[in-house]
């Protein structure tokens, strides 16, 4: 079967799109620096072949932070060589890419715990502690008799 990537990409030419994406990243990064505005670029909506994505990844490089997430399938996030520019890749079924985007932000939202989850967590930790205390008491009670 022919490899989709070796055969050429759909118009417009991918190389032009790669440099276009990089220019947009630079613009948004400036906006973040000056006005604190966050931005996102959806890579899947652009006519980029795998080799163009590879090019883009190489141009942006890897920085200090990277994270593996396990949420309804694996996800990968890393900060690029340019702080504030994050590569976010979500995989779905059978490790196929469900969403791939560049986020221009201090930290991607998905990394921080959301308030509803924190509320639930506080509740469940308290429940766990109570349960632990109960079982310990029961065990000690059993030990005495």
């Amino acid at each position: 079967m022919p490899d989709a990537d070796s055969i050429g990409s759909a118009p417009p030419s991918g190389a032009a799109v790669v440099s276009g994406v990089l220019r947009e990243v630079a613009e948004r990064l400036e906006a973040l620096a000056e006005r604190g505005e966050c931005g996102v670029i959806d890579l899947k909506s652009l006519p980029l072949s795998d080799s163009h994505l590879q090019q883009l990844r190489e141009r942006l490089g890897r920085g200090e932070v990277s994270a593996q997430l396990e949420i309804l399938g694996p996800s990968e996030i890393w900060e690029t060589r340019y702080p504030g520019v994050w590569w976010v890749r979500h995989l779905g079924v059978t490790d196929l890419v469900a969403a791939e985007r560049i986020e221009i932000t201090r930290v991607p939202d998905i990394l921080s715990a959301a308030l509803p989850d924190v509320v639930t967590a506080a509740q469940s930790l308290n429940d766990d502690l109570a349960l632990y205390a109960t079982t310990r008491r029961e065990r000690t009670d059993h030990g005495r008799t």
Partner: peptide, 30 residues
């Protein structure tokens, strides 16, 4: 979702996927 053990992160991830799928502005995913 919370009851079924799916965190808000799961919804965020789904929203990112949905935004891409339906050609919505990607910053709308939150």
């Amino acid at each position: 979702l919370s009851e079924r053990g799916i965190s808000r992160r799961g919804l965020l991830k789904y929203a990112a996927y949905l935004a891409s799928l339906m050609a919505l502005p990607p910053w709308q995913s939150n």
